[in-house]
Design a binder for these strands. Structure first.
Lengths: 105, 105
DNA sequence: TATTTGCACAACCAGATGGTTGTATTTATA
DNA sequence: TATAAATACAACCATCTGGTTGTGCAAATA
């Protein structure tokens, strides 16, 4: 299998989506992210690694701490794709309208 | 691992995203979807199954054919989540502004 | 200085994923 | 009716995923 590292992969996991929204409120270190999660530190650390590789967050070393920041603009790719799909969907109805117009003539 | 069947999972795979956009233009049978893909029929059939389980498409039997239709409104969940994240992100700057205002006083 | 905190690295695991090939069945069509 | 088309079902495979536990180490803090 090919390891896919893009925004769509980043937001595919529910735990990662929660992490992204936590970071949307402001930067946090690993310990801060882990708080209130029902999974182990290591599991979160792995998610952070994936998010970093997907370009969804940036990680900065600060002393012994690992500061994580969300790169929200990455979500534009997702929004754009959704918009594009909807556009195709609407064009589909436009074509149906055209067809009905043709029938009227 | 837990099998996740939601929109985010549906759009996580690039092949599935192509399928969704193909279906956004209008319904197709399996053969129609498979056209121009570099993978086997069976691989596509599996993707179709996943998309169906995720509620991203509906599949209707019609003679020997399997008609697939996109359920575009499912993408609202994705768009909403992105919007929500951006909102948190913007509130973050609002708070920074408030902080700077406080400093001014 | 001793201890706590924050984190990295490694090994391991069950199940999911994305793909393959082969065979069989049903429905249209020539 | 013979053949082609559209699809289903099953087995198999390598790799990824999401999680675990255990060990160790550097940076803060008491």
């Amino acid at each position: 299998m090919i390891e896919r590292r893009d925004v769509f992969q980043a937001i595919a996991d529910p735990t990662r989506r929660i992490i992204i929204q936590k970071l949307s409120r402001g930067p946090l270190n690993l310990a801060g992210i882990i708080k209130e999660f029902g999974v182990s530190r290591q599991a979160i650390a792995k998610h952070i690694k994936v998010l970093d590789e997907c370009g969804m967050i940036t990680v900065t070393q600060k002393g012994r701490e690992q500061i994580c920041e969300a790169r929200l603009n990455k979500l534009d790719e997702v929004a754009d794709w959704v918009t594009e799909s909807r556009k195709l969907w609407n064009q589909r109805f436009d074509k149906l309208d055209q067809f009905l117009d043709e029938l009227d003539k």
